[in-house]
Simulated assay, not measured.
Amino acid sequence: MQVLRFLPVLLVACLGGTSALAQKTPSATAPAPERNMNNSGLIANIGNEQNAFYTFDTRYEGLKGTPYLVSGWRPADLTLSDGRAFSDIPARFDVYSKRLVIKQNKDSVWLDQRMVREFVLHDSPSPAMPTRTDRRFRAFPDATDAELRTSFAELLHEGPQYALLKLPRKKLVKANYQGPYAADRRFDELIDRETYYLRRPDGTLVEVKPNLKGLTAVDAALGQKLQAEAARSKASGKSEAELVALLQAVDAK
């Protein structure tokens, strides 16, 4: 692994014409709340210009949620598209803009899937994955699915035959409080969404529901093995952690 002080030279050498993505201010990060006439001030004329006055709609409450996978910075190992690797770089994954943000001194550098092949975030255990402390993400530039092709997917399992991927996404739900039929929703919100994919032995990637029934529907042979292992280990396979454990058990054989 190389150290961080070599990263500026590497980025200039390997990114070339993509320097626009390495600005301090990204072109697409957290969505800025839209401003309209009601938010910026509405001029209401009564009679004539001498009687004009201003009213302000202060109901808008801003943006809820975060564009990032997790809050704060995490130490990360990353492999660039040319194969060179770096370790222990402060980073965070901007899911909304589909880019990895790394910290270099006091600056932030935005890198997309064209520049980064893979990165690993060293994270704390969570209730969903109590024993997993490293989260590995990879670019899939050859995927037929446009969402997967332009972002980074988390590798929940990668074995000799199968891989289970989770693509994190952020959906922006706009405020809706103006007009007679509005829902009185006074804030924009970024909501977490995930899509799962199974990579089969022939290399194809297919979207799948993260449960035994869903995996069986896209690969009957794998489904039979998973059902047998679930019966043996008395696992339901309904949680992400259990499903990954079942896959690890049958894909290692």
Results as ranks from 00 to 15, higher is better:
169 R>D: 07
217 A>D: 12
128 A>R: 15
216 T>E: 14
138 R>T: 13
220 A>W: 10
224 Q>I: 08
219 D>K: 09
120 V>W: 06
128 A>S: 14
228 A>C: 01
163 A>T: 04
132 R>Q: 15
226 L>N: 11
165 L>M: 09
216 T>L: 11
224 Q>R: 14
144 T>S: 12
214 G>Q: 04
145 D>F: 04
208 V>C: 03
120 V>H: 09
134 D>S: 15
227 Q>E: 14
218 V>K: 07
147 E>Y: 10
232 R>Q: 13
168 P>G: 05
215 L>Q: 07
169 R>E: 12
146 A>P: 11
196 Y>I: 03
208 V>F: 03
202 D>C: 05
232 R>V: 03
240 E>R: 12
232 R>Y: 07
213 K>I: 10
212 L>Q: 11
159 G>I: 04
212 L>A: 11
216 T>G: 15
198 L>M: 01
224 Q>V: 12
227 Q>W: 08
192 D>S: 12
186 R>S: 06
215 L>P: 07
211 N>Q: 12
143 A>S: 08
214 G>F: 03
209 K>Y: 12
214 G>I: 01
147 E>S: 14
126 S>E: 11
230 A>S: 13
118 E>T: 08
119 F>V: 00
136 R>H: 13
212 L>C: 08
218 V>D: 04
218 V>Q: 04
112 D>F: 04
109 V>G: 02
144 T>M: 09
231 A>M: 10
210 P>L: 06
205 L>K: 10
150 T>I: 05
161 Q>G: 12
225 K>P: 03
212 L>M: 11
228 A>L: 11
120 V>P: 08
209 K>L: 13
231 A>L: 12
214 G>M: 02
151 S>T: 02
185 R>M: 02
233 S>M: 07
238 K>R: 15
142 D>V: 08
226 L>A: 09
164 L>H: 07
207 E>F: 02
177 Y>H: 10
169 R>S: 07
130 P>Y: 08
166 K>P: 03
189 E>Y: 03
171 K>C: 01
228 A>W: 00
150 T>K: 13
195 T>I: 14
236 S>Y: 04
162 Y>I: 02
135 R>G: 00
161 Q>F: 13
199 R>I: 09
210 P>S: 06
129 M>V: 02
221 A>T: 15
118 E>V: 01
235 A>L: 15
201 P>N: 10
118 E>S: 14
193 R>V: 11
130 P>N: 09
115 M>L: 13
194 E>V: 10
166 K>S: 15
139 A>T: 00
209 K>F: 10
172 L>Y: 01
179 G>R: 08
120 V>I: 15
186 R>H: 14
191 I>K: 13
236 S>F: 02
149 R>F: 00
165 L>I: 07
196 Y>M: 03
195 T>N: 13
196 Y>K: 05
176 N>M: 00
